[in-house]
Amino acid sequence: LQLFIKTLTGKTSTVEMEPSDTIENLKAKIQDKEGIPPDQQRLIFAGKQLEDGRTLSDYNIQKESTLHLVL
């Protein structure tokens, strides 16, 4: 599924993920695209901070969801 990652600067990146992927996997993919180390990334979806060990489906993240990346 395609996700949009929006940064505080207003920049939006697109990443392709599976519902079974963990937040950790997602942060690794963001690191590949943006060069931001996972330990500096905080991802927010629906007002919640996402935890590394959980999966996208745990948070009911659907295709074309927008996640907010806070550093």
Rank of each mutant, 00 (worst) to 15 (best):
L3N: 02
Q62V: 13
G10W: 03
S13T: 15
Q41Y: 14
D52W: 03
T9Y: 13
P19S: 12
S65D: 14
T66R: 05
Y59S: 03
I30S: 00
G47C: 05
P37Y: 05
G53L: 08
T66V: 14
I61K: 02
T66I: 14
T22S: 07
I5Q: 01
T22D: 03
Q31W: 15
K48F: 09
L56N: 01
S20E: 11
E51C: 08
I5N: 01
T66H: 15
D21H: 05
K33F: 10
L67R: 01
D32Y: 10
S57R: 11
K27I: 03
G47N: 06
E16L: 14
M17P: 01
L26F: 02
T9C: 14
P19A: 10
I61M: 06
M17A: 13
D32C: 07
Q31S: 12
R42S: 09
G35Y: 03
N25P: 00
L8D: 12
D21Q: 07
S57E: 12
P19C: 06
K27Q: 02
T55Q: 08
T12V: 14
E51H: 08
E16F: 15
E64F: 15
R42W: 09
T14C: 08
E51S: 07
F4C: 05
L3I: 14
T9M: 11
K63G: 14
S65Q: 07
T66A: 05
D52G: 07
T22G: 03
I61S: 02
L67Y: 03
G35L: 04
T66M: 07
D52P: 07
E16N: 11
F45E: 01
F4E: 05
E64L: 13
I23Y: 01
Y59G: 00
S13H: 15
R54S: 06
Q62Y: 09
E51D: 08
Q41I: 13
I44P: 00
Q62H: 10
G10F: 03
K6H: 13
S13A: 11
A46Q: 14
P37F: 05
G10K: 04
T12D: 04
D58Q: 06
T12N: 06
L3T: 02
D32H: 11
L71W: 10
Q2G: 04
D32F: 11
K48W: 07
L43P: 01
V70A: 07
K63L: 06
D39Y: 11
L43F: 07
M17H: 04
K11V: 10
V15I: 14
S20R: 07
R54M: 13
S20F: 12
F45Y: 13
P38G: 08
H68D: 08
G10E: 04
S13L: 15
M17Q: 03
K6Y: 07
T55K: 12
V70R: 09
Q31A: 14
Q49V: 15
E18P: 04
T66D: 03
I23W: 01
G10N: 05
V70T: 09
N60L: 07
R54W: 11
S20N: 13
V70L: 14
K63S: 15
G10S: 03
K63Y: 11
E18I: 09
E24A: 15
Q41T: 05
Q41H: 03
Q31F: 15
E24W: 14
T7M: 15
E16G: 07
L67M: 05
L56R: 00
Q41K: 02
E24C: 06
T7S: 11
T9V: 08
Q2F: 12
L3M: 05
Q40A: 09
P37T: 05
E18N: 13
T22F: 08
L1M: 13
T12H: 06
S20D: 12
L3K: 01
I36E: 02
V15S: 01
L8G: 11
P19F: 09
G47Y: 04
Q31P: 01
N25F: 12
N25G: 08
P19Y: 10
A46E: 14
E18H: 14
L71P: 09
L8I: 13
I36N: 02
P38Y: 12
Q49M: 13
Q49W: 14
G53K: 11
L69A: 02
Q2P: 10
E16R: 10
T7W: 15
P19L: 11
K33I: 15
G47F: 04
E64I: 05
L1T: 04
D58K: 02
H68L: 15
Q62T: 14
D58W: 13
Y59I: 03
L67F: 04
